[in-house]
């Protein structure tokens, strides 16, 4: 392979004046994590609500939930980000559109919200599956105890459902982290973006992408280990994984 390797490139100063190329990648890593966490909070909140809606007896609630999930699931994430970033501000009245476009860090907020909503459809599906997997007796018993529907969800169904769907939620969280890289198309310089910038400035293509690859693997390992602890701590006795 006639490619000139230079692994010391990571310790050479980067043109942005704040340190070397490794610092550049690490700052991208931080932004990746920040974006992923914000997006995940949105995904969990919206996903839980929509997931619950789909299991409610009300026909309207469940069809609204269904439409929501289909809407966010049937468009590529990249296209959704373009809609939020390039299209939405132009459709608003001039003043508010302008305000939206000139928020500092607009790519960050757009990415967090756009990825959050995209992932919320998937969280909703997991939540629904979790609630539906509970024996019908649980809901019936809660009702028999005099709990309202809201109370039954709050105290009985959701605490159970969320503990059951912890493993699939872990992989959805990992997807959220990976999906932040799509935001380089709207100017967010997260880890993949920094690797691309490093490649452009230093011409060391494969070193830059290797650096990013190693960092992504690292986040994955950390998240998987952390979630395994959490899963064990929250496992329901009597269920798989419980004591």
């Amino acid at each position: 392979m006639n490619y000139h390797w230079n692994w010391r490139i990571f310790w050479e100063p980067a043109p942005n004046g704040t340190g070397n190329y490794l610092d550049m990648l690490l700052s991208g890593l931080v932004l990746t994590i920040e974006t992923a966490i914000c997006a995940w909070i949105i995904a969990l909140a919206f996903g839980a609500v929509v997931g619950v809606m789909r299991t409610l007896p009300s026909k309207t609630a469940s069809s609204v939930g269904f439409a929501y999930v289909e809407f966010f699931r049937n468009m590529p994430l990249l296209v959704q980000l373009f809609i939020w970033f390039f299209v939405l501000p132009e459709l608003l009245p001039h003043g508010s559109g302008l305000w939206l476009k000139q928020i500092p860090n607009a790519p960050f907020y757009t990415a967090a919200i756009g990825i959050g909503l995209f992932m919320s459809a998937r969280v909703a599906e997991q939540t629904r599956a979790g609630i539906n997997s509970l024996p019908r007796g649980q809901k019936l018993a809660a009702t028999a105890l005099g709990l309202t529907t809201a109370q039954a969800y709050r105290y009985v169904l959701l605490p159970m459902a969320f503990r059951i769907i912890m493993p699939p939620l872990t992989s959805e969280f990992l997807s959220t982290i990976k999906n932040t890289s799509v935001a380089i198309t709207i100017g967010l310089i997260e880890l993949t973006g920094e690797a691309r910038a490093m490649q452009e400035f230093s011409f060391q293509v494969f070193e830059a992408f290797t650096g990013a690859t190693v960092l992504y693997l690292l986040i994955n390992v950390v998240v998987v280990i952390a979630m395994r602890f959490l899963e064990r701590a929250l496992a329901v006795p009597g269920y798989i994984g419980g004591k």
């Binding site: 043109p15 942005n16 973006g193």
Partner: peptide, 18 residues
């Protein structure tokens, strides 16, 4: 690259959108 360098050298705090 020149924008990035000028930004660092002159301490301009420009938010660069690639």
């Amino acid at each position: 690259k020149q924008l990035t360098e000028a930004n660092a050298a002159r301490n301009l705090g420009i938010n660069i959108i690639p």
